[in-house]
């Protein structure tokens, strides 16, 4: 065996800068993992593409296109992005259960950092991974007649990150106390499907819906993410997409919910979910 000289090092005395560094390395690891896991990278695009081109074009052909070229696939474009990042974000968040089962979580837990930093790193990791995926989908806008306006793209990018952040927080809340992946998977499936179907991603949320469905859609925070993305997208369509008759946005007792309020609802949901997750995770520390 070779003799190598070891020089002792000193562990950081703690403090805010150290916590930020800890959160950022947890975040970086999630990105690195996503990048090395090509299978997941590719399969995460499958569902949104099916929605957009199979359901969008298929159902669109049946519904017929409105004036101004706003057809069904254009209508569901924002909702498809929102639900696409939703699935990616939740599955990224759930990786914390794999970390627990396979031991790596312990490596993080015994480090001299707060568990809140670990959660924040994980949340930004999931949010970044999902936003990346959403951005790639965003590049397909032209195929469903959405113009490549820089402001539209910028607005959508911001909304995708915000949505991914809130949904990752939701996923972490489901996953953080779970011991095994078996307990989490059914729970996730059970929650994700209603969140998607009740978000108005696939149908207009206006007048003709039955009352119970109108209420369910308005209670679902995902609806506000979809509504915000749709407002931004439709703003840049010719005639603001009104020609299609799809364009009715989310309303509260007839009052149209403005995009800024959508953003506040989504952001607040994310912060509340993340806070509860942190509370659960640090409770028995």
């Amino acid at each position: 065996m070779s003799t190598v000289e070891l020089v002792p090092v000193t562990v950081a005395p703690g403090g805010f800068a150290h916590e930020v560094r800890a959160a950022s390395v947890v975040w970086k690891r999630d990105l690195l993992r996503f990048w090395t896991d090509r299978g997941r990278l590719i399969s995460s695009f499958m569902q949104p593409l099916l929605f957009l081109f199979v359901l969008g074009k298929g159902l669109g052909a049946a519904l017929g296109s409105g004036r101004g070229g706003t057809d069904y696939s254009t209508f569901i474009f924002p909702g498809t992005l929102a639900t696409g990042v939703m699935f990616t974000a939740v599955f990224s968040a759930i990786s914390v259960v794999w970390d627990r089962e396979l031991g790596f979580l312990r490596e993080m837990l015994v480090a001299p950092v707060s568990r809140v930093s670990i959660i924040i790193g994980k949340c930004f990791g999931g949010a970044s991974v999902a936003t990346l995926q959403g951005t790639v989908l965003l590049a397909l806008a032209g195929l469903v007649h959405v113009p490549y306006d820089p402001l539209l793209l910028l607005g959508m990018f911001g909304l995708l990150f915000l949505t991914s952040f809130a949904i990752t927080a939701f996923g972490l809340l489901i996953a953080i106390r779970a011991e095994t992946i078996q307990t989490v998977m059914p729970r996730t499936q059970l929650l994700l499907a209603p969140l998607m179907f009740l978000s108005g991603a696939l149908f207009p949320t206006g007048g003709s819906l039955p009352m119970w469905l109108r209420i369910a859609v308005r209670v679902n925070p995902m609806s506000y993410a979809v509504d915000a993305m749709r407002s931004v997208t439709f703003h840049y369509l010719p005639d603001h997409g009104r020609g299609a008759g799809f364009a009715t946005g989310l309303t509260w007792w007839g009052w149209p919910v403005p995009p800024w309020l959508d953003v506040i609802v989504v952001f607040t949901s994310g912060v509340v979910l993340l806070s509860v997750t942190c509370w659960l995770f640090t409770r028995d520390e």
Binding site: V4, T10, H18, R21, A22, P112
Partner: peptide, 20 residues
């Protein structure tokens, strides 16, 4: 990173430990 070691000190130590 998570222990907050200075990069300049950690890099040679990592190399040395891997060697050992």
């Amino acid at each position: 990173d998570i222990y907050g070691l200075a990069r300049s000190a950690a890099t040679p130590r990592i190399a040395a430990l891997l060697e050992m």
